[in-house]
């Protein structure tokens, strides 16, 4: 057990290291380097129009020397990695601000949104999935299946627009963003948390609908497999009431595979949420990542990719540990 945890943690560390290399190499890929981009940016930017930075070769070389960009790649990587370890991701070219400042709050928002979405998905999908499997091939099962397919088929952004319109037109809710204006830049407080919850449910529904529908399908099929197993028949032969039996045995077994998916949910939600975030103007990482990529704001992009990678690794580690707790077959192996 302890050996397992140590091994998994070491593996997680190694994976993070590899991700950081990939993220760093991604920065190096496009033609030119930070210096070129920086100088170009200075030239094009209107408010940086100082005489000393009039884009001659000397300036560019100076920057390159100052930043150590003339050194070999692995030294550049070590320097970058050293700074990253100290949570210094550098400065965004486009925004001209420290990356940690740009990303920090958005990262928190993204994680909160992901958690909200997971919560929504599970709370809705687990009971429906169980119902659908236990009553399989009945009218109720078919109805749920139909709604599920509908949920899978409707594009997120369309759903977002629809919900926004309904919320706005019928309930007079301000539905954009994650915070009301008065809390936007406020420090964390009880009021701010309540305000966040008020805003969170719409994007959580929008982002969670497709996932819920998928989860219902998978849970239903897993559970149908489990329901036919001898240990269920054995429990039934013991005289256990049906609902108690289903919840205690096959549902527990059918949920196990989902625990292992927790780790992947974050990147999945992030890439899936870009359009929704734009439509609902959510201050999450999605739109920033998209912009940074289109604008070749490479340090920013690398920082986001790296953070997501690390979060995914952590998520996977957590789901591994949860699996070990929930499934003695893995624990005692």
């Amino acid at each position: 057990m302890i050996a397992f945890l140590v091994r998994r943690t070491l593996l997680a560390g190694l994976t993070t290291f590899v991700i950081s290399i990939v993220a760093f190499l991604a920065i190096q890929l496009p033609p030119g380097d930070y210096a070129t981009t920086y100088v170009e940016n200075l030239l094009g930017g209107s408010f940086f129009n100082t005489a000393s930075a009039l884009g001659d070769q000397a300036t560019e070389d100076q920057i390159r020397r100052d930043l150590g960009l003339d050194r070999p790649v692995f030294i550049q990587y070590s320097k970058w990695a050293w700074r990253v370890v100290h949570l210094d991701f550098g400065i965004s070219i486009e925004h001209g601000r420290k990356i940690t400042e740009i990303v920090g709050q958005r990262l928190v928002n993204t994680v909160l949104l992901a958690l909200g979405t997971i919560l929504f998905t599970w709370v809705l999908a687990v009971p429906i999935g169980i119902y659908s499997a236990v009553k399989h091939n009945t009218a109720g099962d078919y109805a749920v299946t139909f709604l599920g397919f509908l949920g899978l088929a409707v594009p997120d952004f369309l759903l977002a627009l629809g919900l926004m319109w309904i919320g706005f037109a019928y309930f007079d809710l301000s539905v954009g963003g994650l915070y009301s204006p008065e809390y936007l830049d406020a420090a964390w407080s009880f009021g701010r948390a309540v305000d966040l919850l008020k805003h969170l449910w719409i994007p959580a529904i929008v982002l969670g609908t497709a996932g819920t529908a998928g989860l219902i399908r998978i849970l239903r099929n897993n559970l149908l497999d489990e329901l036919a197993k001898p240990y269920v028949v054995a429990a039934r032969a013991r005289g256990l009431p049906e609902w108690k039996l289903v919840l205690k045995y096959p549902v527990r077994m059918a949920l196990n595979p989902f625990i292992s998916t927790i780790g992947y949910l974050l990147p999945f939600l992030l890439s899936g949420s870009v359009i929704v975030s734009v439509v609902l103007s959510l201050p999450t990482l999605g739109p920033v990542l998209l912009r940074s990529l289109t604008n070749q704001d490479l340090f920013l992009a690398a920082a986001i990719v790296l953070m997501l990678g690390v979060l995914t690794v952590i998520g996977t580690l957590i789901s591994d540990i949860l699996l070990v707790i929930f499934d003695p077959r893995i624990r005692l192996d």
Partner: peptide
């Protein structure tokens, strides 16, 4: 099946 007649996680 004495193997599968018990739930493996209880």
């Amino acid at each position: 099946e004495p193997m599968t007649s018990f739930s493996p996680i209880h």
